[in-house]
Design a protein around this nucleic acid. Sequence first.
DNA 1: GTGGTCTAGACCACC
DNA 2: GTGGTCTAGACCACG
Lengths: 90, 90, 90, 90
Amino acid sequence: MSIDFENPTPLYLQIASDIREQIETNTFTVGEKIASQSELCQSYGVSLMTVKKALSELVNEKYLYIRTGKGTCVADINKQSNLIWRRIKV
Amino acid sequence: MSIDFENPTPLYLQIASDIREQIETNTFTVGEKIASQSELCQSYGVSLMTVKKALSELVNEKYLYIRTGKGTCVADINKQSNLIWRRIKV
Amino acid sequence: MSIDFENPTPLYLQIASDIREQIETNTFTVGEKIASQSELCQSYGVSLMTVKKALSELVNEKYLYIRTGKGTCVADINKQSNLIWRRIKV
Amino acid sequence: MSIDFENPTPLYLQIASDIREQIETNTFTVGEKIASQSELCQSYGVSLMTVKKALSELVNEKYLYIRTGKGTCVADINKQSNLIWRRIKV
DNA sequence: GTGGTCTAGACCACC
DNA sequence: GTGGTCTAGACCACG
C-alpha cells in the first residue's frame, strides 16, 4: 500500500501494480468491494484522475470491474480469458 | 468536424466518432499525421484531457497510433486484426 | 439566504426563489460564479438533488447558466444569448 | 529580472542567479508559487530547456521545490524538510 | 513543440 | 454516496 513519488514510473502505474499485487496475493476475496476512488485518493495521496487511470488499467486487465454508482469490485481472474486479452494487448 | 454540446453523449465519444468517420471515409491517407492534440482542443472547443480520451479510444480500436513527441497518425485498418480486438472488447 | 423547512412550498422552489432574489437585487454581477452545488447543499442543509432541481429552475428561466467542469454563473437576463452549453437533467 | 546574452556565463546559471537573488532578497515569501516554466521562457526570452536547467540548479540548492501538475514554489531554506516530490531531470 | 502525467476542483448520472 | 465526464492549467519526457 505504498507508492514512491521519486520513482519515475507514473504514479497511476505504481498504484495499479500495488492493487494488482494485493489481488494476486489474495488480500481480497473475489467480488469484494475495494476502497472507493476518493478513499484511494486519500490513502495514496494523489488526485482523483490518477486513481481513475490506475483503476482503468486493472479493469482492462480484468482484475476489477466497476459498477457505476455502486463501487469497484475484484473480478474472478480464473473465470476470465485474461491471457488472451493480454496476448493481444501486449 | 462538429460536436454537439447539448447531446448527452460524452464529448470524447463524439469526437472519437467524428475522427473515426473521417478515417473510414478516407478523408485521411494511411500514415498521414492528423492535427496535434492542442489543435484538436481548439477546433473542437474542449480541453486537452477530453481530446486525449477521444484519441485513446481510437488507438485502442487501432484506427490511430501515437508516437510520443512526433504526432498522431492514421493506421492501416486492413492490416490489423481489428475485428478480433473489437469482438473481445465488446 | 434562508429557507423555511416548515413552509409547504417545496424546498427546491424556496431555494430557487432565494437565489433568484439575490440575482435580481444585484447581489451578484453578471458572469459571476455562484457557490458550487455541494456548497449550496451545505449552506441550505438540503440534499444534492434538491439543489439541482433549484438550479434547473433558474437555468430554464435564464437566470443562470452551467458550464460542466467549471461552475454555475449568473446570466445576463437582458441579453438572452445562447450560453447554455449542456441541458441540465434532474 | 534580467540576463545578459553577451555574458559568457551560461544563460541557465544567469537565470538561476537571478531567481536565487530574488529569493534571498525576499521578493518571494516561503511557499509562494513562482512563474510557470513557460512564463519564465517568455520573460527571459530563452528556451524551455534553459529554464529547466536553471530551476534544476535551484531545486538542488533547496531554494525551490517542484510539485508536478501544481507548480514551482519557494522553499524554506532554514527548514530543510523533505518537500521534493519528484526528482527533476534535465 | 509533440505527446504524457498530474492536480484540484467543477458538474453529471446512477443507486 | 458511488463512479463518470470535464476543465484549465501545471510540469515531464522525448525528438
